[in-house]
């Protein structure tokens, strides 16, 4: 279990780092395209499309790591006031919600990807092959299931340094 845990940590963290770099790449791409529009009078013609695909990658590459470090948003107000035995039950239930969602998502997104591979679907403007980006969807949620198993079906605990409840969303 220890090695399995370490492996999951490493794997999700590596994908996360690729995601961060993808985000930096996306910023630079949009920046360069904007500058080009004004310097030589035209933007990089496929930059919007590629930025969209990078946005998608950023999302799916980072979700497993963020789950692993317990930073996804939960409404745990009601749960926090429960007593420990009930807390374990709700903890189990909420892991079940995540796993159920992930399984359906993997099934459907795999199908989506396979179909697009079969018809050789490409992006509108630049003709980028799409299935390699689509495969990130089932991949991401397969890792989420592994992360949940690694945490023994409990909600990943926030480490103390992470307690500012995700200076998140707005």
């Amino acid at each position: 279990m220890h090695i399995f845990g370490k492996l999951i940590d490493k794997l999700t963290y590596s994908l996360f780092l690729i995601g961060v770099m993808g985000g930096i790449g996306m910023t630079l791409l949009v920046f360069v395209s904007t500058v080009l529009r004004y310097v030589i009078g035209r933007p990089i013609y496929f930059s919007n499309e590629l930025a969209g695909l990078l946005f998608l990658s950023l999302t799916f590459l980072t979700i497993p790591h963020v789950l692993n470090i317990g930073r996804h948003i939960r409404i745990d107000l009601a749960v926090n006031s429960l007593r420990p035995p009930m807390k374990r039950v709700t903890g189990l239930f909420s892991s079940f919600v995540l796993i159920a969602f992930s399984l359906i998502f993997i099934y459907e997104s795999w199908d989506f990807m396979r179909f697009s591979l079969m018809i050789d679907a490409r992006s509108d403007i630049s003709g980028i092959l799409l299935w390699p980006w689509m495969i990130l969807m089932p991949l991401s949620f397969t890792l989420c299931i592994l992360v949940q198993i690694r945490h023994g079906l409990r909600s990943p605990e926030l480490s103390k340094s992470n307690t500012v409840p995700a200076e998140v969303t707005s």
């Binding site: 996360f16 995601g19 961060v20 985000g23 930096i24 950023l58 999302t59 980072t62 979700i63 790591h65 963020v66 470090i69 930073r71 996804h72 948003i73 969602f101 995700a166 200076e167 998140v168 969303t169």
Partner: peptide, 18 residues
Amino acid sequence: AFVNATIMFSAIAFIMLG
């Protein structure tokens, strides 16, 4: 800063997905 921002973004993105 990029790493922290990405964590924050990912949390939003999961909600957007849902």
